[in-house]
Write a protein that binds this DNA or RNA. Structure first.
Lengths: 146, 146
DNA sequence: ATTTATGCAAATCGTTTGCAAACCT
DNA sequence: AGGTTTGCAAACGATTTGCATAAAT
């Protein structure tokens, strides 16, 4: 997707939540878009030194709230952030390296996804649990750490 | 599995890592076993008031290291712990309520699991990533919170 | 007897928050 | 002008750690 369309989408999500699309927020979105993989807040601050740490924290919270970004919780304790699937049209899961903490995206074949979705629906019904989403992570060692 | 066999297994895992199976560790394992669902450290301390908080943290770290327990990271920031699958012979995944933070276990049909495992193997090969395990969580609202 | 584990309290570190100044509309 | 956002620095809270004592082998 073009960067302009991306920013339009984010602006619209923010407006719905009565928030403004400020320069700082636009820069965070651009950084996430250019990173192409989930990044930590520390990394965002390194990639764009013009942002205050507290603003990055606050803005990511707001962007998550309006559905523009997703926070990924891994075992090492630095949250990772990436653009939400609604903005990238790109349903995916994560490969998490348990050694260096790097997170990368991967996709499953569409028929595997639909098998899973059906199985999840059955589980939700049986457990009386309303399912809003799923999280599928593969844990192991990346090429560098193996 | 009987509690005695469980403790034997844990003792053996600990010995392999040059650790002792102390009273405190035995009590933590019993608490996890009786809880039957993933619990937070705060909950462990409530269930067994005879343990020092720092010892619970330290012992869970060691028990995780030797493969006796698993730490589950959710979005609310209290880690949950449960007995490792190696001890329970009970491969499962988690339902995580995003409102109250409660975590419960569920299982997939064996054929769904094997479809998944094959798909994961393909992903790992293509991404040059050595897969050690996976984590599948369904996020949503439990019966109480819905 | 020697090594390992415990309890307490203090330290650590990612994240959150209060407040006054800067910004957008 | 009126409300929102920002940067700074201080506060927070889950987890970790130092150290002297107690327990395990």
């Amino acid at each position: 997707m073009s960067a302009d369309l991306l920013h339009d989408d984010v602006a619209s999500l923010l407006r719905t939540g009565d928030h403004r699309y400020t320069t700082g927020r636009r820069r965070i979105i651009s950084t996430l878009n250019e990173a192409g993989a989930p990044v930590t807040i520390l990394r965002i601050l390194e990639l764009d030194t013009g942002l205050a740490q507290s603003s990055v924290y606050r803005n990511l919270a707001i962007l998550e709230e309006v559905g523009a970004v997703v926070r990924i919780v891994t075992h090492d304790d630095h949250a990772h952030y990436e653009l939400a699937e609604a903005l990238t049209d790109h349903h995916h899961h994560h490969l998490i390296c348990t050694h260096c903490g790097v997170v990368t995206d991967f996709q499953l074949a569409p028929d595997t996804e639909s098998t899973l979705d059906k199985a999840f629906a059955r589980v939700g019904k049986r457990a009386d649990f309303q399912i809003d989403g799923h999280r599928l992570d593969l844990l192991g060692s990346c090429a560098e750490c193996a």
